[in-house]
Amino acid sequence: MKLYAKVFGKALVFVAALLILFGWVHRSYLIHPVAGTSMQEALQDGDRILLSKRSPIVRYSVIGFSMPEEDGMFVKRVIGLPGDSVLVQGNRLVLSIGDEGFTTTYTFDLDAKAARQLKKTTTIPEGHYFVIGDHTAVSKDSRTFGWVQAADIEGKVQYRLYPFSAFGPIN
């Protein structure tokens, strides 16, 4: 009887440890498929990616997020951060970023609806980001739907998990 209690106790500890580990992984990471070609060459349609829910979002991070009025999850690259200067003239947005002591300026053509929304500000608001797909000709991104709210970001892409032949970190 004593042996059964010892085995049962060890099994209980093992199951509890697994549950704790599973809970931590579930709170910290998400696996998601990539749909579409907007992030080619970095990511391909059908890739499976690992997102970290706790990694800080910095300029040029690849993130996964959802949009309130859109279906599915998007995967895009962060170009504009909160506080970056923007100027919208007509359907054109000029984004000025000051990384590492010098200023870089990007110019983007916007959808008319996005231009109306973004015209209201001169800086990217706190808790918002400007994102764009690497394959700009086909990407539906901030040029179409405007700012991405931090609350809608599901995580920062860390690794491509599948296909196994392309396993590795995503930059």
Results as ranks from 00 to 15, higher is better:
128 H>P: 00
106 Y>C: 03
138 V>Q: 03
60 Y>T: 13
112 A>V: 15
134 D>C: 09
100 E>Q: 14
144 T>D: 15
119 K>V: 05
97 I>E: 02
133 G>Y: 01
117 Q>W: 03
96 S>Y: 03
90 G>E: 13
80 G>C: 04
86 V>I: 15
110 L>P: 02
66 S>R: 14
61 S>I: 08
109 D>M: 08
89 Q>F: 04
140 K>I: 15
123 T>E: 13
78 V>D: 00
139 S>N: 07
152 D>F: 02
93 L>A: 12
57 I>M: 08
105 T>F: 04
105 T>I: 12
73 M>N: 10
81 L>Q: 12
59 R>V: 06
70 E>F: 10
136 T>P: 02
87 L>H: 04
101 G>L: 07
66 S>A: 15
153 I>T: 00
76 K>A: 09
125 P>Q: 08
112 A>E: 15
123 T>L: 06
91 N>P: 05
150 A>S: 13
68 P>E: 14
75 V>P: 00
84 D>M: 03
108 F>Q: 05
109 D>W: 05
143 R>K: 13
69 E>I: 08
139 S>L: 05
51 L>N: 05
118 L>Y: 00
106 Y>W: 12
75 V>C: 07
159 Y>V: 03
76 K>I: 08
53 K>C: 08
58 V>G: 10
72 G>C: 12
63 I>M: 02
135 H>G: 00
145 F>G: 00
115 A>S: 14
88 V>T: 07
150 A>R: 10
139 S>G: 06
119 K>G: 08
65 F>S: 01
149 Q>C: 07
138 V>H: 04
128 H>F: 05
117 Q>A: 12
97 I>M: 07
156 K>N: 11
131 V>F: 02
151 A>F: 02
144 T>R: 14
54 R>T: 14
99 D>P: 11
131 V>C: 12
124 I>K: 00
128 H>Y: 04
67 M>W: 09
114 A>P: 05
123 T>P: 01
64 G>Q: 01
158 Q>V: 13
140 K>W: 10
101 G>A: 12
